[in-house]
Amino acid sequence: MATADSVRPVLEEALDGSALVLDEVTVSPAGKRRVVRVLLDRDLGDVDAVTEPTAPLSLDEVADATRAVGEALDASDVLGELPYTLEVSSPGVGRPLTLPRHFQRNVGRLLEVRTADGETTGRLVAADRAGLTLEVAATKKTSARTATVPYAEVDRATVQVEFARHDDPKES
């Protein structure tokens, strides 16, 4: 059976030259077929630091990538003769942030970051090669502050869902 490691080079070649990067690929059995799940993200390039929000992928970008990836898989023999179902999307908000580029693409969003010292929730205002910077809102017991956390100290980090941002200029 084809594995994610054998499919990855085919997908990366199909996306070469696009503004997208392959974030993750999984191949799993589903009855008489397989499901190939592909997670894509915007290619930020080789940047030192990100301080501005990154635009999310549009439906047109995902559709174009789906066509390119599907054609590449069909043209190669990496999946063999068994049929497959292709699912292409961008990473969801509940997915843990594990790589510097995951943090860089989420600048401007509210994060919950767990370290050995505890949990901190704050707005991600910058992400560079070494760590992230959060603006932590004031509470009844603490004043507002800025927290810088090296990636090596992050045990878990996730984006928090916000239905309405209080500081969003579009809401004013």
Rank of each mutant, 00 (worst) to 15 (best):
M1Y: 05
A2V: 12
T3A: 08
E12W: 10
L15N: 02
L15T: 01
S18Q: 12
S18W: 11
S18P: 02
A19K: 11
L20R: 08
L22G: 04
L22S: 06
D23V: 15
D23Y: 08
V25M: 10
V25K: 02
T26C: 05
T26S: 14
V27P: 03
S28C: 07
V36L: 06
L39Y: 11
L40N: 00
L40D: 00
G45P: 08
G45V: 10
V47N: 02
D48Y: 12
T51M: 12
E52K: 13
S58G: 13
V62P: 00
A63L: 14
D64G: 03
A65F: 01
E71Y: 04
L73V: 05
D74S: 08
A75K: 09
S76G: 06
V78E: 00
L82Y: 06
Y84E: 01
Y84S: 02
E87T: 05
S90W: 00
G92F: 11
G92V: 13
G94Y: 09
P96Q: 08
L97P: 03
L97H: 09
P100N: 05
R101W: 01
R101S: 07
H102G: 03
Q104C: 05
V107D: 01
R109C: 04
R109S: 08
L111V: 13
E112Q: 12
R114T: 15
A116I: 13
E119Q: 13
T120L: 13
R123V: 15
L124E: 00
L124G: 03
R129K: 11
A130V: 14
L134W: 01
E135S: 13
V136Q: 02
A138G: 08
K140S: 10
A147G: 00
A147R: 13
V149I: 15
P150Y: 09
Y151A: 05
Y151N: 03
E153V: 12
E153C: 11
V154T: 02
V154A: 07
V154P: 01
D155P: 00
R156F: 07
A157R: 07
Q160H: 06
V161W: 12
V161N: 00
V161F: 15
F163R: 07
R165D: 08
D167Q: 10
D167W: 13
D168K: 09
D168N: 11
P169R: 03
K170I: 04
K170Y: 08
K170Q: 06
S172H: 10
